[in-house]
C-alpha cells in the first residue's frame, strides 16, 4: 500500500497575528513555523501507525512551498515516512495547490491520500476535496477514526450532532482530525534518519489561480469586559437580557 500525506507549513498556534505592506501580507517577523497540527498529529501519525502494522506500506510526504518549507518537511520525515516531495511553488490559492498535489498523486499511483481537515492559517478545509475531484477518487472528510483491512477502508466521520461510519474501497482521499491518532514527538533516531531520507524537489505544473487574497483585516478590539460582582448574579442576567439581548 502506498500512502501520500499532505504536509503544510503554518505559524505556531500561539503566534501573534499581524500584517504588513498595507495589510496585504502576513507579517512573518518573529513567527515560529510548525507542521500544520492536523497534518502532523493526525494525518502523518495515522499513516505511520499503518506502516508499523504492515511494513510493506510506503509513505510519501508532499508539500507545496518554497525552499523555506524544507525544515518543516524534514521535521515531518523525522516522525516517519520514506521520502518527501516538495513542489517548488508559492501560492495561497487552494485550486493551484491542489492541482500540484493531484499531479504528484497521479504519477505515484497512491492507494490513500491523507490530508488534515484544514490548515490553521487559511482555514480553507478544502484541499482534500479538490484533490479527490482532480484525481476522480472517493473522498471522506473530517474523519475521527480510520481503519484499513485489505483494500477496504472503514472511516468514522463527523456529522452534525453525531458520527457516521463509512466504508470505501481504496484508492481514496480522506481528511482527518482529532481522534484518528495521538500526537507524537520525534525522537533522536528519527531526526538522524530524516537527514538521509530523499527529499525530491519538482517544479510546479502550470495551473490556474481562481482566487487571490487582496488584503487582511484584524477583528475590532473588544470593548473590554464588564465585570459583575459574584453576589449580584441577577445583574448579569439583566445585562444579558436587556443589553446583549443574548437570552
Amino acid at each position: 500500500m502506498k500512502i501520500l500525506v499532505c504536509i503544510s507549513k503554518t505559524p505556531d498556534t500561539t503566534s501573534r497575528i499581524a500584517f504588513k505592506d498595507n495589510n496585504t501580507k502576513f507579517d512573518e517577523s518573529g513567527i515560529q513555523w510548525i507542521i500544520n497540527p492536523y497534518d502532523e498529529w493526525y494525518s502523518l501519525v495515522r499513516a505511520i501507525e499503518l506502516k508499523e502494522k504492515d511494513s510493506s506500506v510506503i509513505i510519501h510526504l508532499i508539500t507545496v512551498g518554497t525552499v523555506d518549507t524544507e525544515p518543516i518537511i524534514r521535521k515531518a520525515l523525522a516522525l516517519g515516512g520514506d521520502e518527501a516531495i516538495r513542489v517548488n511553488a508559492d501560492s495561497s490559492d487552494s485550486y493551484y495547490i491542489a492541482t500540484q498535489i493531484a499531479e504528484i498523486a497521479r504519477q505515484g499511483n497512491y492507494d490513500l491520500i491523507f490530508t488534515g481537515k484544514e490548515t490553521i492559517d487559511y482555514n480553507g478545509a478544502v484541499i482534500g476535496a479538490l484533490v479527490a475531484e482532480l484525481v476522480d477518487l472517493p473522498y471522506v472528510s473530517l474523519a475521527t477514526k480510520f481503519e484499513v483491512e485489505g483494500t477496504t477502508a472503514t472511516i468514522t466521520r463527523e456529522i452534525e450532532g453525531g458520527e457516521e461510519v463509512n466504508q470505501v474501497q481504496l484508492p481514496m482521499v480522506v481528511s482527518v482530525q482529532k481522534g484518528v491518532a495521538e500526537q507524537r514527538i520525534p525522537n533522536m533516531r528519527g531526526i538522524m534518519a530524516a537527514r538521509s531520507k530523499p527529499l525530491k524537489v519538482v517544479e510546479p505544473v502550470s495551473a490556474e489561480t481562481l482566487t487571490s487574497c487582496i488584503n487582511f483585516e484584524l477583528p475590532p478590539a473588544k470593548a473590554g469586559v464588564k465585570l459583575v460582582a459574584a453576589d449580584n448574579v441577577a445583574e448579569l442576567v439583566r445585562l444579558l437580557h436587556e443589553e446583549a439581548k443574548a437570552i
Binding site: N123, G124, V126, A129, L130, E133, Y139
Partner: peptide, 18 residues
C-alpha cells in the same frame, strides 16, 4: 466542506470557504 471543493473543480469555479 466535503463537496464545495469538488464542485469547484468540476465547474472551474473559484471557491471561498468560511
Amino acid at each position: 466542506k466535503a463537496v464545495a471543493g469538488r464542485v469547484s473543480v468540476l465547474l472551474k469555479a473559484g471557491l471561498v470557504t468560511g
